[in-house]
C-alpha cells in the first residue's frame, strides 16, 4: 500500500465514523460538530483528487459559514431530542431492511470495475489549474445557470425577510404628560364589524 492509499483509507475511516456520529449523537451540538469533521475529511479526499478549488470551497463555505451559523441556531434553540426520536424503534425494522437493500445494491454498482479508474488516468496534467478552469467556465458556458443561481440567492433573501420581518418596532418610552391627560374614549374604541364565521 503506497502512502496515498493509506491517507485515503485514514480519511475515509474518519469520514464514515463522523457521518455515523452525526445521526447517532444524542446532543445536537455534537452532531453538528461531527458534520464539520465529515466536511473536513471530505475536503481532504477531494484534495487528493486534485480538486483543490472544490475542497477549499467546501471548507470555507460549509465549515466556515454554514455550519457555524447552524451551531448558533442549535445552541439558541432548546431542541428536545427525545421527542424527535419518538417512534424510532417502531420504524427501525422497515427502515433497516430498506436501508440494507439500498446499501447492497449501491455497493454492487459502485464497487464494480467501471468506477475503478487507474490513478494515472485520473490525475490532472501539470500546469492546469482547476480553479482557473472553473472560473472561466462559470462566466462563459455556464453563465446562464450562474446567473440563475444568483436569482435563487435573491429569492432566498426575499424569503428570509418576508418570513421574519414584522415591521419597524417603535421605541417603548412612556410620556407622563399624555398619561395624565388621557380620557376614557382614548382607551376604548367601539368598532362596527361585519359578522365573521369561524
Amino acid at each position: 500500500m503506497d502512502f496515498q492509499t493509506a491517507v485515503f483509507f485514514f480519511l475515509s475511516a474518519i469520514l464514515i465514523f463522523a457521518a455515523l456520529r452525526v445521526i447517532t449523537a444524542r446532543n445536537p451540538v455534537y452532531a453538528a460538530l461531527h458534520l464539520m469533521l465529515a466536511f473536513f475529511t471530505t475536503g481532504g479526499i477531494w484534495l487528493m483528487l486534485q480538486a483543490e478549488f472544490l475542497a477549499i470551497a467546501l471548507i470555507v463555505v460549509y465549515v466556515g459559514a454554514v455550519m457555524v451559523l447552524f451551531l448558533f441556531v442549535v445552541m439558541m434553540l432548546d431542541i428536545n431530542i427525545d421527542r424527535i426520536r419518538e417512534g424510532f424503534w417502531r420504524y427501525l425494522p422497515l427502515g433497516a431492511v430498506l436501508g440494507l437493500l439500498m446499501v447492497l445494491e449501491m455497493g454492487l454498482v459502485l464497487g464494480s470495475k467501471y468506477f475503478q479508474v487507474p490513478l494515472a488516468e485520473a490525475t490532472v496534467p501539470a500546469g492546469v489549474s482547476n480553479t482557473r478552469e472553473i472560473g472561466a467556465l462559470l462566466v462563459t458556458d455556464y453563465v446562464l445557470p450562474f446567473e440563475l443561481a444568483a436569482v435563487i440567492l435573491l429569492v432566498g433573501m426575499i424569503a428570509a425577510v418576508v418570513l421574519t420581518f414584522r415591521g419597524v418596532k417603535k421605541s417603548k418610552i412612556s410620556n407622563p404628560n399624555t398619561q395624565v391627560f388621557v380620557k376614557a374614549k382614548d382607551r376604548i374604541r367601539v368598532l362596527q364589524m361585519p359578522v365573521e364565521k369561524d
Binding site: Y142, L144, P145, L148, A149, V151, I152, V155, G156, I158, A159, V162, L163
Partner: peptide, 25 residues
C-alpha cells in the same frame, strides 16, 4: 437543455414555493 439548467430552474421554482407556503407565518 442541460442537467444543470434543469436543476437550477427546479430549485428556483421550489424555493419560491416553499416561502409562499410559509407566508401565513
Amino acid at each position: 437543455n442541460n442537467f444543470v439548467t434543469v436543476y437550477v430552474g427546479l430549485e428556483l421554482l421550489s424555493l419560491s414555493l416553499y416561502a409562499m407556503v410559509a407566508m401565513n407565518r
